[in-house]
């Protein structure tokens, strides 16, 4: 990754939720970057903070109970660098970016569209909000967008309500809506998780094609390693509110560094290889309100050392463009470990 065309940099982002009795550290020091016109896949298990990170970028953290308590979200635009974490979420400046320069699509196509408004209206609303256009022009553009996402007979479907469409069609409409203002960054939060495989394949192909035409960077959130492999240029692996590993897609799949990533690869059944016994990661994901003080993966890690229990490992480069947050890759810790082994 060259820093010249970095589009968005998230640095040490922390988002906390105040639920009665405890503070949930949903995002607990997340650092990553997205380059323009590239696709970053963000993978991680349920509850690890993928959605909350995305919402933080959009300025959409529900508050209360949520709050960005630390870190920066640096958005590189023509006029310079803006820290989105510092902008008032409901302010003019944030609203001009949200939905316009940075757009987002959500997981549930069935509930993400307003059931009482037509598809066309919901797309036009975005267009007229951010661009100087008459209603008629906006409608023409909405039809064009629907055509671009492969909805048949867009002139007719533009006046339909969401319930008249299937899940796949709705997700296409959501994509049309998000792309209608030509964003530079599209955040897609598990856009195909709720869809059937054959429909998922359609939508993924569509997104791959659109990516070329629209020149947008994509932050693609998913928990499906298969989807990441097919969609992403770069991958960030999240665990318990942190990025534990980030690299190009090939590096992640061919030489995973973090024990969690390695464990994940071994625990998924493969469609392409012959059957072998799965090697699961033992234990369960801790609750984010009760996270371990050191490395979040320590309780389940087969490689754990004593330092892992006490101190969270920083995210460091293990190779050019390949970062991992694990004490195994801290040179001096290696020495310590070797010595310890020698004693045993």
């Amino acid at each position: 990754m060259t820093s010249a065309d970095v589009l968005l940099e998230v640095r040490d982002l922390e988002v906390h939720f105040a639920v009665p009795g405890v503070t949930v550290r949903a995002v607990d020091g997340v650092t990553y970057a997205i380059d323009s016109e590239r696709t970053l896949g963000v993978v991680g298990e349920s509850g690890c903070g993928k959605t909350v990170t995305a919402l933080a970028i959009m300025g959409l953290i529900p508050s209360p109970p949520g709050r960005i308590v630390g870190g920066q979200i640096l958005y590189h635009r023509d006029g310079g660098i803006v820290d989105l974490a510092q902008l008032p979420p409901r302010g003019q400046e944030m609203r001009a970016i949200r939905g316009n320069e940075i757009a987002m699509i959500f997981q549930e196509p069935m509930t993400s569209l307003n059931p009482v408004l037509t598809i066309g209206f919901q797309i036009m609303e975005s267009i007229t909000l951010h661009q100087r256009m008459t209603k008629r022009e906006a409608k023409r553009q909405a039809v064009e967008m629907l055509r671009a996402v492969g909805i048949p007979l867009p002139e007719e479907r533009v006046d339909e309500f969401p319930h008249q469409m299937s899940g796949g069609m709705r997700q296409r409409a959501m994509i049309a809506m998000a792309l209608s203002c030509n964003p530079v960054l599209l955040i897609a939060d598990e856009p195909t998780t709720a869809l059937d495989v054959t429909i998922q394949a359609q939508v993924l192909e569509l997104m791959n094609n659109l990516r070329r035409d629209f020149h947008a960077a994509i932050q693609f959130i998913t928990h499906d390693l298969g989807v990441v492999a097919g969609m992403a240029d770069d991958v960030a692996v999240m665990y318990l509110g942190r990025i534990v590993e980030a690299a190009t897609v090939r590096d992640i799949f061919h030489s995973p560094k973090h024990p969690y990533t390695q464990g994940l690869m071994k625990s998924i059944p493969s469609l392409t290889r012959s059957k072998e016994r799965l090697v699961p990661i033992e234990g369960i994901v801790p609750d984010p309100s009760d996270a371990p003080p050191g490395c979040g993966f320590e309780p389940r890690c087969p490689e754990r050392m004593s330092i892992c229990r006490t101190t969270p490992p920083p995210l460091v480069a293990t190779a050019p463009g390949h970062d991992a947050a694990c004490w195994l890759y801290q040179p001096d810790v290696h020495l310590v470990r070797r010595t310890l082994r020698g004693w045993k």
Partner: peptide, 25 residues
């Protein structure tokens, strides 16, 4: 055939002609 080819494979270099089914169920 279509179902199998639609499954995303966790292998970045897995190249296969995807048979993308048109239409909905």
């Amino acid at each position: 055939e279509a179902l199998v080819s639609a499954v995303p494979v966790p292998e970045p270099d897995y190249m296969v002609e995807r048979m993308i089914l048109q239409g909905d169920v």
